[in-house]
Amino acid sequence: AIERGSKVKILRKESYWYGDVGTVASIDKSGIIYPVIVRFNKVNYNGFSGSAGGLNTNNFAEHELEVV
């Protein structure tokens, strides 16, 4: 089962992080479509409006993740 702290591989082909491994930061139990927040070591794009980097978290559905 996917739980907080799990290392997961991203299976969503259109994702910037496809094939990468991230760490589960949290799981939303409220029934939303993409409840699993995954944190990565790298950012997906340069930040804007003065922020240092881009996003390094993204929401995924459990079926888009594979525990490694």
Score class of each variant (00 low, 15 high):
Asn58Tyr: 12
Tyr16His: 05
Tyr18Trp: 04
Glu66Asp: 04
Gly50His: 09
Arg12Cys: 07
Thr23Val: 12
Ser51Asn: 11
Ile37Pro: 00
Lys29Val: 11
Ile32Gly: 12
Asn44Gly: 08
Asn46Glu: 15
Phe48Leu: 12
Ser15Asp: 06
Asn41Ile: 10
Val36Phe: 15
Ala25Ser: 09
Gly19Lys: 05
Gly54Lys: 05
Glu64Ser: 02
Lys9Gly: 02
Arg4Tyr: 10
Ile2Asn: 02
Val24Met: 01
Ala25Met: 15
Ala52Tyr: 10
Gly50Asp: 13
Ile10Lys: 01
Tyr18Leu: 02
Phe40Ala: 00
Gly19Ser: 04
Gly50Trp: 06
Ala52Arg: 04
Lys42Leu: 07
His63Arg: 06
Tyr16Gln: 06
Lys29Leu: 11
Tyr45Lys: 15
Leu55Tyr: 12
Gly5Arg: 02
Ile27Thr: 03
Arg4Glu: 11
Ala1Gln: 12
Val21Ser: 02
Val43Glu: 13
Val21Met: 05
Phe60Ile: 02
Ile10Arg: 03
Phe60Lys: 00
Val67Pro: 07
Gly5Phe: 05
Phe60Met: 01
Gly22Glu: 02
Phe40Ile: 03
Leu65Asp: 02
Ser15Pro: 01
Asp20Cys: 15
Ile2Pro: 04
Ser51Trp: 07
Arg39His: 07
Glu14Ala: 10
Asn46Thr: 08
Gly50Lys: 04
Val24Tyr: 01
Lys7Phe: 12
Ser15Leu: 02
Thr57Ser: 09
Glu66Ala: 07
Lys29Glu: 10
Val36Arg: 00
Gly47Arg: 03
Ala61Lys: 06
Val8Arg: 03
Ser30Leu: 05
Val38Cys: 04
Gly5Met: 03
Trp17Ser: 00
Tyr34Trp: 08
Tyr16Val: 07
Gly54Cys: 15
Ala52Val: 11
Lys42Trp: 09
Gly19Asn: 09
Asn44Tyr: 15
Tyr16Ile: 07
Gly50Ala: 10
Ala52Phe: 11
Asn59Lys: 08
Asn44Asp: 15
Gly22Leu: 05
Glu64Trp: 04
Ser51Lys: 06
Val38Gly: 00
Lys7His: 12
Ser15Trp: 04
Tyr16Gly: 03
Lys42Ile: 07
Val21Asn: 02
Glu66His: 05
Glu66Val: 08
Asn56Ser: 09
Lys7Glu: 05
Val68Met: 10
Ser15Ala: 03
Ala61Asn: 05
Gly31Tyr: 10
Asn58Trp: 15
Tyr16Pro: 08
Gly54Asn: 06
Tyr18Ser: 03
Phe48Ile: 13
Arg4Met: 09
Ser51Val: 11
Gly47Met: 04
Leu65Gly: 00
Leu65Ser: 01
Gly54Thr: 08
Asn56Phe: 12
Phe40Gly: 01
Ile27Tyr: 08
Ala61Glu: 05
Gly22Thr: 03
Arg39Asn: 06
Val21Ala: 01
Ala1Glu: 09
Asn56Leu: 08
Phe60Val: 01
Val24Cys: 05
Gly19Met: 10
Lys42Arg: 12
Ile32Val: 13
Ala52Lys: 09
Gly22Gln: 02
Val68Lys: 03
Arg12Trp: 03
Glu62Thr: 11
Ala25Val: 15
Phe60Cys: 03
Phe40Pro: 00
Ile37Gly: 04
Lys42Met: 05
Glu62Cys: 14
Lys9Gln: 04
Ile33Tyr: 08
Val68Gly: 01
Gly31Leu: 12
Lys29Tyr: 12
Gly54Pro: 09
Ile32Phe: 08
Ile33Trp: 07
Arg4Asp: 06
Asn46Pro: 15
Ser30Ala: 08
Leu11Gln: 03
Asn46Trp: 10
Asn44Ser: 11
Asn41Glu: 12
Ser30Val: 05
Gly50Val: 06
Leu11Phe: 02
Ser30Tyr: 06
Ser6His: 06
Gly5Pro: 02
Ala52Met: 12
Ile27Val: 08
Pro35Tyr: 14
Asp20Thr: 10
Ser26Met: 13
Leu55Gln: 12
Ile2Cys: 13
Gly53Trp: 05
Lys7Arg: 12
Lys13Asp: 02
Gly5Trp: 05
Gly47Phe: 05
Tyr18Cys: 05
Val8Lys: 01
Tyr34Gly: 05
Val68Ile: 11
Gly50Ser: 10
Pro35Glu: 09
Tyr18Thr: 03
Ser49Phe: 11
Val67Gly: 02
Gly22His: 02
Asn59Cys: 15
Val67Met: 07
Lys42Ala: 06
Thr23Leu: 06
Ala1His: 11
Val8Gly: 00
Glu14Cys: 15
Glu66Gly: 03
Pro35Thr: 12
Gly53Glu: 14
Ile32Thr: 13
Ile33Pro: 14
Arg12Ile: 04
Asn41Asp: 10
Thr23Phe: 09
Lys7Ala: 07
Val67Arg: 05
Phe40Trp: 01
Val24Trp: 04
Trp17Ile: 01
Asn58Leu: 07
Asp20Glu: 13
Glu62Leu: 14
Glu66Lys: 08
Pro35Asn: 14
Val21Glu: 04
Tyr34Gln: 06
Gly5His: 04
Glu14Arg: 08
Lys42Thr: 09
Gly50Thr: 09
Glu3Gly: 11
Glu64Tyr: 03
Val21Asp: 02
Ser26Trp: 14
Ser49Gln: 11
Asn59Met: 09
Gly22Phe: 06
Ala25Gly: 04
Phe40Cys: 03
Trp17Asn: 03
Tyr34Asp: 06
Thr23Ser: 03
Arg39Asp: 04
Ile2Trp: 03
Ile33Arg: 13
Glu14Asp: 10
Asn58Ile: 09
Val21Phe: 07
Leu65Val: 05
Thr23Ala: 04
Ile2Val: 07
Glu64Thr: 02
Gly54Leu: 07
Glu14Trp: 11
Thr23Asp: 03
Ile33Asp: 11
Val21Pro: 00
Tyr16Leu: 06
Ser51Glu: 14
Pro35Ser: 12
Arg4Ala: 12
Ile37Asp: 01
Ala25Phe: 10
Tyr18Ala: 03
Lys29Arg: 12
Ala25Thr: 13
Thr57Lys: 06
Pro35Lys: 14
Val68Thr: 05
Phe60His: 02
Val38His: 00
